[in-house]
Amino acid sequence: MAKAQERHEEAVKLRREFPRGKPPAEALAGVQDDAIATFTATGKWPADYAKRAAKAHADALVWESAALALRRLEDATKAAAEDLRDSLSPDVLTHLDGRLTEILDAARDAGETLGDVTTAEQAIEAGGDVLDAWRRLTSLLKDYRNVRDAQWDVLRAVSGMDERSRVVLWRDAGHGEVKDVRVEDIPPHIRSVMQSRAYTIEYLVWVARSGSAFVPASFDDLEFSVTAATEPTAYDDHGPIRDMSPVVLPEREYKPLNTRRDPRPYVD
């Protein structure tokens, strides 16, 4: 894939460096304009017009044939690189995911040695194994950044125009780093690093310990991860969830019936 991209870049360079010229019709029209201007000014038609016109047209044909060939070369190498990239992108992303696992396994071990140390000054002061672990994590941090950069390059490259803009939005929101973790459950200072991609050793150790880091296998895989991290864990397809449990009403207070009889005699 790298070789195909390299060939495309070489073709682009060749076309851009090719000298500017004129199409045959435009070159011939230029000679005609000169002849007409000469005749208008002097009343004489240039004796060498035919020779000049033929040469201008022939030279322009040579230039145009080379320019068209270079344009086709650029288009062909671009298509070849894109086809190869699209066909190999799942393998590339799988490779990156495996490489990420290796980096985080090493970072997890070094993080255990590091303990509560979070700065270079603390590591220098501690010295010994702690300082060695800090140096190891510094190297792993560069590897981690390279994997993430490659991940986003591939995901953007294999996506359409609309999908590409969504990939960028998701990346800038901090998605695509860990899966099966809701946004609200990520510590704010860690989420801030995800969004800025200004990776730190503290962040690298956190990701390694989380056990949730991944490289999306495709655009669809990334989209699924974003949905799982942002949508509610439970919802009612038919609308707002309602409490259908029986309503318990307070007991009614019954007053005794008034059974007092009218003292007046009954008169028929």
Rank of each mutant, 00 (worst) to 15 (best):
A80S: 10
A80K: 10
A81E: 11
A81N: 03
A81M: 06
E82F: 10
E82K: 14
E82R: 12
D83P: 00
L84H: 01
L84K: 02
L84D: 07
L84V: 05
L84F: 00
L84E: 12
R85Q: 11
D86R: 12
D86E: 11
D86A: 10
D86M: 12
D86Q: 08
D86H: 09
S87R: 11
S87D: 10
L88M: 11
S89W: 01
S89I: 01
P90S: 09
P90Q: 07
P90Y: 02
P90A: 09
P90R: 02
D91K: 02
D91P: 03
D91H: 01
D91G: 02
V92H: 06
V92S: 08
V92F: 10
L93C: 02
L93T: 01
L93G: 04
L93Y: 04
L93M: 04
L93N: 01
T94Q: 09
T94R: 12
T94L: 10
T94C: 06
T94V: 05
H95S: 14
H95I: 04
H95R: 13
H95F: 13
L96W: 06
L96C: 07
D97V: 03
D97S: 08
D97Q: 05
G98F: 08
R99I: 03
R99A: 15
R99K: 14
L100A: 03
L100H: 02
T101Q: 14
T101S: 14
T101E: 15
T101V: 10
T101K: 12
T101Y: 09
E102R: 12
I103F: 07
I103E: 05
I103D: 10
I103C: 10
L104Y: 01
L104P: 00
L104C: 00
L104F: 03
D105N: 12
D105I: 11
D105K: 09
D105M: 05
D105V: 12
A106M: 14
A106P: 00
A107F: 07
A107W: 02
A107G: 03
R108L: 14
D109A: 15
D109W: 07
D109R: 14
D109P: 00
A110F: 14
A110D: 15
A110R: 11
A110Y: 11
G111E: 11
G111P: 00
G111I: 09
G111C: 08
G111A: 09
G111Y: 07
G111H: 09
G111N: 07
E112V: 15
T113A: 13
T113S: 13
T113N: 03
G115C: 06
G115F: 07
G115R: 04
V117Y: 02
V117A: 07
T118D: 14
T119Y: 06
A120S: 12
A120I: 08
A120P: 00
E121F: 13
E121H: 13
Q122C: 12
Q122G: 15
A123F: 11
A123P: 03
A123K: 09
A123V: 09
I124E: 15
E125R: 14
E125F: 10
A126D: 05
A126P: 00
G127Q: 10
G127R: 11
G127Y: 03
G128T: 06
G128Q: 07
D129K: 09
